[in-house]
């Protein structure tokens, strides 16, 4: 199974090549290369401080990497070099959306308004950069109706329709997480980056989140990149896992492969470099025939 998917020629949507990010004397990411495939849920995992969020911020344009190339290839074949674009262009032109580790909703706006703000660029165009809209042109009204329909679709998906007219800050934590994802989806992305979407959720909220993510993969052609600490979420929903430690990639493959990679186990459990061989042997003893 693992071999099959690896040998299949997959279509990469995001290609990260030789990415490095330096903060003063700290090398947060060091020569990282990986690919995310179209239609997949790719998970980026690693111990605390491994540089996962930094990779995210580089991909979404919030940081300018010191070195390296990040290529986003849209379905139509158009390629964007994300490291050269500013943060809002990454969303507007390259169609890469993101969420944040600490939720960033517009808390004083209602849930529906949050989803309408996400469709800003489309509505801006429809309102003739506000001028036609101010004069009450029908094209703008039609566009608003369409946007509300789209917002309704995602409200339904995120199970938030009942709270549509409440302020976003009034929602419980799990619902805020789902709203943030719904808001990102309202921008119509081809690639969605989620920074620890399950952090702080209780098991039931976690389940609702998994359902939402699976729904996104099934019903839209949006590919997902996610950072997650909760291994149950990672192993259950991701198709492809990239493991970081100290800003370098230590493993890359399907969840099963990564789970048994001695380097990953060493990174998470923490062993000396010289003991890595021992760990490999131990794993071989415990699970014969499952090593790659």
């Amino acid at each position: 199974m693992a071999l099959e998917t690896d040998t299949m020629t997959k279509d990469p949507i995001l290609k990260v090549e030789h990415l490095s990010m330096r903060f003063g004397g700290l090398m947060a990411i060091n020569d990282l290369s990986f690919e995310a495939y179209r239609g997949d849920i790719t998970a980026l995992i690693g111990p605390n401080g491994a540089g996962k969020t930094t990779v995210f911020n580089c991909v979404t344009g919030f940081y300018k990497p010191t070195m390296g190339m990040i290529t986003m290839r849209q379905k139509a074949g158009k390629e964007y070099l994300l490291e050269r674009m500013s943060d809002y262009e990454v969303n507007r032109d390259a169609k890469v959306a993101r969420t944040f580790q600490n939720i960033r909703l517009f808390s004083g706006l209602t849930v529906l308004e949050n989803l309408l703000v996400a469709q800003h660029n489309k509505l801006m165009l429809a309102s003739g950069y506000t001028i036609l809209g101010l004069l009450g042109f029908p094209t703008y009204k039609a566009a608003v109706g369409e946007s509300i329909e789209r917002a309704k679709y995602w409200l339904d998906k995120a199970n938030l329709t009942d709270r549509a007219d409440d302020p976003a800050g009034d929602l419980p934590y799990g619902a805020q997480r789902r709203l943030e994802i719904a808001r990102a989806m309202c921008t119509g992305p081809e690639f969605l980056c989620l920074d620890e979407p399950a952090a702080g959720l209780n098991p039931r909220e976690s389940l609702a989140l998994n359902e939402l993510l699976r729904g996104i993969r099934k019903d839209t052609d949006t590919s997902i990149l996610l950072i997650e600490h909760d291994m149950s979420v990672v192993m259950e929903i991701s198709d492809h896992v990239v493991v970081l430690e100290y800003g370098q990639k230590i493993s890359d493959g399907n969840p099963d492969f990564v789970k048994h990679d001695p380097k990953v186990i060493a990174a998470y459990l923490g062993v000396e470099d010289v003991e890595v061989e021992e760990v490999i042997e131990q794993i071989a003893e415990i699970t014969p025939g499952d090593t790659h």
Binding site: Y88, N91, F100, L105, H120, L123
Partner: peptide, 25 residues
Amino acid sequence: RMPIGRAWEALREDEIACRSLGINT
């Protein structure tokens, strides 16, 4: 009620989130 007005209010609420949604702040 125009997108620009909503963007202003969104800007007041959270500027970084605005940029992540493709709004030129």
